[in-house]
Design a protein around this nucleic acid. Structure first.
Length: 527
RNA sequence: GCCCCGGUAGUUCAAUUGGAAGAACGUGUGGCUUCGGACCACAAGGUUGGGGGUUCGACUCCCUCCCGGGGCACCA
């Protein structure tokens, strides 16, 4: 709707610049456009004059979808026709999945790479933000018509992996190196005790031992946590697998941009040169990442890639793009969502995650304490680029203050009406009758508009990758739903009258289920 | 020192990327013989960190300064 309207307005007003249409849903109207400002500028005329000239033509052309088009303060405000909302209502009752679906993505292949945590220990809080963002963005892209592939890049080689091996050996009191960099912690003790044989067998190959142990960590620590978050990857991509032949192919292609210095192979870049192969002959992570992305875009033909990265990887990401340019991979193929650090607030104390100090908060512990859903909700609620403070006590509260709870409660109380009524046979639902009852109910219409525009909101998120728009929109809609709930009594003494009103409740419940599904949180029938 | 992110109502944050400053919580007032009151309605609350610039229009872009956080490895 938005897209089409923008194009129609551009054509009607003959503007060079593409006008903008925004969903506003406020006292001004449902949609608003700046087309008159643009036309005014391009033709050096007052917006009002232009509107007077074009008014009749525009109204005629757009009469199908809008009952009113208004000129206010230079803006053009559009009011949706009610017929459209009746259609939305029917869909919400009968085919709720369609509330979200659109073909914005044209089935283009997108790879969303996220989490990609080093398999050297359990997931911590920061990883959680990454995982949640990646999952939600994937769901949005799927619903807006992209063909989405979710991938975890498994860094199963290199220095960290060697240190993992060495750390294991040190637990067994075997001679090691790099003493002060070794991993510690209960999980490691557990891991070593369970795999003693393995450790002794490969005590002379710490890197390989680390690799074997990293497999166990992925299997027995990381994957279970992902399962409890309801996140499933399509693939775990092994960094090791890049080094069979692809590495030579890529190195050959970028050869002209490399040079040798101090025994290492460097890649020349605009901002800062990077080492590809260390003087000890080992490839760096940077080289791996170049090969990996070459594989994504050239070998596997993904049209777009989205990577969810912690803020500390920002520079790395930028240089990766530079390197990919050398390989002929266009910059706009790869997008990053960069997120900032996560803090935890417990009562008045703010705990800062710091690996060095050892106050790591494991994701599992947090899930155990507050449950997976509040975490998922709050991690998408805040824009990625802000420092997020997760309020532990708030997430557990059962009051309005806790927006997660408020939203879930809204669904539960609607559901309770359906429960109270008992069995509902789908065939007998009369949407039309219900529409007649509520079509002049202001609150109900407002909610339907929000359901109508849900699709557009998803497209907006797919375009901008600003996931926080979703929970905000859901909270606002829940507010309206509760308002409606309070003002309309659904269950009446006369059962047949109640029956006529039920489709309205079914539509709202279905919408919430669809919205929650997008955020990967559960619709609860009881709180 | 260089680079990145943030600074908006008492608080936590939005503002669909240059378009009408908005939510939620908290506060104040009003509403319960309750389809779940664990709720709802209304109201007050703003010089968008400071200053300058570009623009019909700036929280948004440019310059500069201040405050908070993060990053600057032959680590990943």
């Amino acid at each position: 709707m938005k897209n089409e309207l923008e194009l129609k307005l551009k054509k009607l007003f003959k503007t060079k610049e593409r006008p903008q249409v925004r969903v506003i849903l406020n006292e001004y109207g449902d949609l608003a456009s700046n087309v008159l400002f643009i036309a005014a500028k391009e033709n050096k005329k007052e917006p009002k004059k232009i509107w007077d000239e074009f008014k009749d033509e525009v109204e005629k052309r757009l009469a199908k979808n809008f009952e009113k088009i208004e000129f206010v303060n230079g803006y053009l405000n559009f009011h949706l026709k009610k017929d459209l909302l009746f259609k939305t209502f029917k869909i919400a009752v009968k085919k709720p999945k369609q509330i979200s679906l659109s073909n914005f993505g044209h089935k283009q292949k997108v790879i969303v790479e996220f989490l990609s945590a080093n398999p050297t220990g359990p997931l911590h809080l920061g990883n959680g933000r990454n995982a949640v963002l990646g999952e939600v963005i994937s769901r949005v892209l799927k619903k807006t018509g992209f063909s989405v592939f979710k991938e975890y890049y498994n860094n199963n080689r290199g220095r960290q992996i060697k240190i993992l091996g060495l750390s294991a050996l040190s637990f067994l009191k075997l001679p090691t190196e790099n003493e002060n960099e070794l991993y510690k912690g209960k999980y490691l003790e557990e891991l070593v005790n369970k795999n003693k044989g393995l450790c002794f067998k490969f005590k002379d190959q710490p890197e390989y031992l680390g690799y074997l142990l990293s497999k166990k960590i992925l299997e027995f620590y990381i994957k279970p946590t992902l399962k409890s978050l309801g996140i499933k990857f399509d693939n775990f991509f092994s960094e090791r697998s890049l080094y069979s032949s692809l590495d030579k192919e890529v190195l050959q292609k970028i050869k002209r941009h490399t040079y040798k210095k101090d025994g290492a192979l460097w890649l020349k870049l605009e901002t800062k040169d990077e080492v590809l192969i260390k003087s000890d002959g080992e490839p760096t992570y940077f080289l791996s990442d170049i090969i990996y992305h070459y594989h994504k875009f050239v070998k596997r033909n993904f049209k777009y890639g989205i990577n969810i990265l912690g803020a500390d990887h920002l520079d790395h990401g930028r240089r990766l793009k530079e390197a990919l340019k050398i390989l002929g991979i266009k910059e706009n193929k790869l997008k990053f969502i960069i997120y900032q650090l996560v803090y935890v607030k417990k009562f008045e104390k703010i705990l800062k995650m710091s690996k060095r100090k050892g106050d790591i908060i494991f994701l599992d512990d947090l899930i155990k304490e507050v449950g997976p859903d509040p975490i998922k909700f709050y991690f998408v609620f805040h824009p990625p680029e802000t420092h997020l403070t997760f309020d532990l006590e708030l997430a557990k509260k059962k009051t309005e203050e806790n927006l997660y709870w408020y939203v879930v409660y809204t669904g539960a109380r609607l559901e309770s009406i359906l429960k109270k009524f008992g069995k509902i046979s789908k065939k007998e639902i009369d949407v039309k009758k219900c529409w007649e009852i509520f079509k002049d109910n202001k609150q109900f219409i407002e909610i339907l508009k929000r359901i109508y525009f849900w699709k557009e909101i998803l497209i907006e998120v797919a375009k901008s990758l600003q996931v926080q728009i979703l929970p905000q929109y859901i909270v606002e809609t829940c507010k309206k739903i509760n308002n409606f709930y309070e003002s309309e009594k659904i269950i009446e003494k006369d059962r047949s009258k109640t029956y006529q009103k039920l489709p309205a409740i079914i539509a709202l419940v279905n919408f919430l289920k669809e919205a929650f599904d997008t955020l990967n949180i559960e619709f609860k029938e009881k709180v």
